[in-house]
Amino acid sequence: MTEAHSQALSAKLAKNRLYQDCFKYMQSDSLALPTIPDVSVKIRRAINEPNANSNKIARVVQIDPSITARLVKISNSPLYRGRRKIESCPEALTRLGLKAAQDIITAFALKAVFNAKSPVIRRKMQELWAHSSYVAAISAVFAHKTPGFDPDRAMLAGLIHDIGVVPILAYADRQPEILANPTDLAEAVRELRSPIGVQIVRKWDFPSDFEDVIIHAENWHRDSGETASYSDIVMISQLHSFIGKIDIKQMPKLDELPAYKKLAKGNLDADLSINILDQAKDEIEHIRQMLT
Rank of each mutant, 00 (worst) to 15 (best):
T94Q: 06
K245M: 06
Q7I: 14
A112Y: 01
Q238N: 10
F142C: 11
V141L: 09
M1H: 06
N115P: 00
E211L: 02
S54P: 03
V39C: 13
P78Q: 11
T94E: 08
N219Q: 14
I200K: 00
R81E: 09
I163C: 06
S208N: 01
I105D: 04
I243G: 05
A58N: 07
A130Y: 02
A186Q: 08
I160W: 06
D64A: 07
M1C: 08
W129G: 04
T146A: 01
Q238Y: 12
K117W: 03
P78M: 14
P65I: 01
S10A: 14
Q20M: 06
S241G: 09
R123K: 09
V141A: 14
L254P: 01
G164N: 01
D173R: 01
D271W: 04
S118I: 03
A186N: 06
A112R: 07
R153S: 07
Q238P: 00
T183C: 03
R193E: 07
M251N: 01
S30F: 04
Y25S: 10
I214S: 04
F206L: 14
L179A: 05
I160N: 04
Q102H: 07
F114Y: 15
V234H: 11
Q20T: 07
S118N: 06
I248F: 07
A58V: 15
K85H: 12
V165Y: 03
L9V: 11
Q175M: 05
A130W: 04
P182G: 14
A52H: 12
P119K: 01
A8F: 08
I243C: 02
I63W: 04
R84S: 12
K261E: 04
A143M: 09
S133H: 00
M290L: 15
I57V: 15
L31Y: 03
Q199M: 03
L254T: 03
D173L: 01
K145V: 05
Q62S: 15
A46T: 09
A116V: 01
A172S: 04
R123T: 06
H144R: 13
C22W: 03
I233R: 12
L254Q: 05
N48R: 07
E49G: 10
P50D: 07
K24S: 14
R288I: 03
Q20I: 04
F149Y: 13
Q7N: 14
A109M: 11
K12C: 09
Q27D: 10
R81C: 07
I248N: 06
S54N: 12
A130T: 02
V213L: 05
K24P: 04
L98Q: 09
V41H: 08
S88M: 11
H286F: 13
L156T: 09
T94W: 02
A112I: 11
P151H: 14
E285D: 13
Q7E: 09
P258T: 02
I168E: 02
A140W: 08
G158R: 02
R190T: 07
K262F: 01
H161T: 00
E256V: 14
K85D: 10
M155C: 14
I214P: 01
M26P: 00
D247G: 06
V113F: 07
T183R: 11
K261Y: 00
A58Y: 10
K117M: 03
D152N: 15
H5I: 13
A217I: 00
N219E: 15
A46N: 02
G158A: 09
P151C: 12
P90S: 15
I63T: 13
M235D: 03
E285L: 12
V141N: 02
I178C: 03
S66N: 13
A92H: 10
I243D: 05
K281C: 13
K56C: 09
R123Y: 04
